[in-house]
Design a protein around this nucleic acid. Structure first.
Lengths: 408, 408
DNA sequence: ACAGTTTCCCGTAAATGC
DNA sequence: TGCATTTACGGGAAACTG
């Protein structure tokens, strides 16, 4: 048999894609008095809509490392959709796929001292998707559930999802960046996000955000929701901007107005990096310049998307950027990363390829001090997050209402 | 049932990837006297190594358009490898996967006028692969087989594959470019290829090329074979250079020496486009320049690969190319496409995006006359090629030795 | 250890279904 | 018809296997 094959989407547990292998583990916390026969556990999925393609029964084993408690790990489980479920779908058609919550159940039956014990336990709510394009939507659901309820198993949560306080939500968002991209969001960045989501109410009081506003309805004038937009940025960072982001060189979330306010009094050639608000997964830079008549001028480039960034890393783009106007090539207009860090001091050690053939650009390796990192407390702590990441992990006796005991 | 889902790799018939759907069709050319019952056909694959996952039995139908002859089209067929075939693999382990030839068989049995007729027919040799990365190798096999034998079914062809005359082979190669990229190869291009493959013997006589030299052994000093290299170029053209190639603006196959001979007496700024010989799927340009002291100088860029070309189309790269040396930006050094076509006249109408922000570059749309196209006769004509492309198509009575008749 | 081969699965495009 | 969802499969990478 094969070995590792981690669960689906290592960064996003509790989301299972049909046809893709996942792993789950059950541990029996109560110590059974001398169960000398093999304790079989059976996993089943949901009620109607999906089923487990692969072998779903295994025998519990003593965990070698810990104190002899029994556990089973199911590997290579795979979900498939049931076809022809007499007409209607399992869940009411009002919810989107990523709002439908499912659960994995584990059953075991054994006899101790004349008692037949029937254990059943089921997982936290799971989201099932059929394509990775549904992953952001699924993850939005997991976050919302996690943030707003303590119920271990409320599969109808999204029929009437509660609102979230912006304070709580912003912590979750910062945590996403922290856990996935190595650096959370600071107050200013969160303020911009809050205003984007709620208008300028944020400052007044602790406003509430609806589920729909967060991840279902489109941002006015755009063709994507707030979360889709934010997640596209997270993905861009993960794939192409990790060092630049974790060094805190990307201000990222700044409105155009704020950007101008920040830049206008700065040295010409001062620039900052921000994420595109009009396109998914784009990053751009804006620099300030002074006209001959002394007037302040702002310039930006078309956002760079993953396509362009996979051809040339962002740091190199910054190093090599040139403006050519009216047939004259000017020198690189990017001089100081806001507020006033000389470009090469900030990006020097992030440059990758040598400057493109015959290019200017100083690639000396000035080492910049990594700025101090600090993170707020999130609703889901990084420890919890990591644990979830490890496996979908359940402890049988922790959900005691699920344990039925009957007498022989 | 679903509809189109063409066979695997539309451009490369006779290659089937496991787990990917393909289509095949059988037609009964003899007109049967009044067969009033349903004529069932069964498809089977090979003997040992693979099997057809999906439904493999269908009833023949009268083709609506033609003259009432019977045919079946199998759709959504899928191949899967048989596991545990008692120790050894089906074919001797000496051959690589792409050299193992397989066949699809069709069987039908019916009774006419007291005779039980047992029809069996089988396909041309097929190559089975498990990953698209094996496609070039598989296609090499198909070409070699097609070029060097007329036997309809010699599954052991590659245990001792014959050599090919360079004259024949070069026609096949040109045909690949013609069929897949819209323009074949001219004499000069083929000469360069011949020399690459055989050293400088080509000119002397009609040299023979071994199968191994063509697609198995690496080019000296490289980590890929001749065909892998050539096919990587074909793929690059198909994906990123189609218009430029079909307009004949890519000389492509020129040795560095020839390149210098061609360019040295030309106007400074004359450039030509050639494919990288050191890396798979790369294209570069070389231009001639004159130093202050009058000495001729040649410059080239690092090859552009699919990654870079998917970020910016090649024509735009040529338009926007600038050299920056010692802090001074010079104007675009590319002036005339060899021999003497003004750059914008050649590429003008192929420019895509507007020149990058504040860029020079004349994007006026000068229409260039498409150069006359001429193609040599190939071993496999384009008509034949297209027919193969349509479906794997067999006519039952065309392989009469496969028809067994027995009496009741 | 390693090369040839297969498996895995993301991400895009196309097909399907509602 | 249009949108939500699923299926298809190329392509890169990891896993497997002799």
């Amino acid at each position: 048999e094969k070995q590792p094959c981690m669960p689906t989407h290592p960064q996003k547990p509790l989301i299972i894609k049909t046809g893709v292998q996942f792993t789950t583990k059950v541990r029996l916390l109560v110590k059974l008095p001398e169960v000398d026969y093999q304790l079989k556990v059976k996993t089943t999925f949901d009620n109607r809509q999906f089923f487990i393609l692969t072998n779903n029964t295994k025998v519990m084993d003593i965990e070698d490392y810990s104190n002899g408690c029994l556990s089973v790990e199911f590997r290579h489980l795979q979900l498939k959709e049931k076809k022809y479920i007499n007409g209607t779908k399992g869940n009411e058609g009002l919810l989107s796929v990523t709002e439908e919550l499912h659960s994995l159940s584990f059953e075991a039956c054994f006899t101790v001292q004349g008692l037949t014990i029937d254990l059943e336990i089921c997982s936290l709510p799971l989201v099932v998707i059929s394509n990775v394009s549904q992953l952001p939507g699924g993850w939005a659901s997991v976050m919302w559930y996690n943030l707003l309820t303590d119920e271990p198993k409320n599969l109808t949560f999204f029929t009437n999802p509660p609102r979230a306080n912006w304070t709580q939500l912003s912590e979750v968002l910062s945590w996403q960046f922290s856990a996935q991209a190595g650096r959370g969001l600071d107050k200013e960045q969160l303020t911009m996000l809050g205003e984007k989501l709620l208008g300028h109410h944020v400052s007044c009081s602790d406003y509430q955000v609806s589920w729909s506003r967060f991840s279902k309805e489109n941002i006015p004038g755009k063709s994507f929701s707030f979360w889709m937009w934010l997640d596209s940025i997270l993905e861009l960072i993960k794939k192409h901007l990790l060092p630049v982001w974790s060094e805190n060189y990307i201000m990222g979330f700044v409105s155009k107005e704020t950007e101008r306010i920040l830049l206008k009094d700065k040295e010409p050639g001062t620039f900052l990096l921000r994420f595109s608000e009009s396109h998914l997964g784009g990053i751009t830079f804006t620099w300030v310049d002074r006209e001959d008549n002394g007037e302040v001028k702002f310039n930006s480039v078309e956002p760079y998307t993953k396509n362009r960034l996979s051809a040339l890393p962002f740091a190199d783009i910054i190093r090599d950027y040139k403006v050519i106007s009216e047939g004259v090539v000017k020198e690189n207009p990017l001089k100081f990363l806001y507020p006033n860090i000389p470009k090469d001091e900030a990006f020097g050690r992030l440059y990758n390829s040598p400057p493109s053939k015959g290019e200017t650009g100083n690639s000396s390796s000035v080492i910049s001090t990594p700025p101090p990192s600090q993170s707020p407390e999130p609703p889901m702590t990084p420890g919890e997050f990591n644990m979830l990441n490890e496996h979908l992990c359940f402890d049988i006796d922790s959900v005691s209402t699920q344990t039925h005991t009957k007498y022989t």
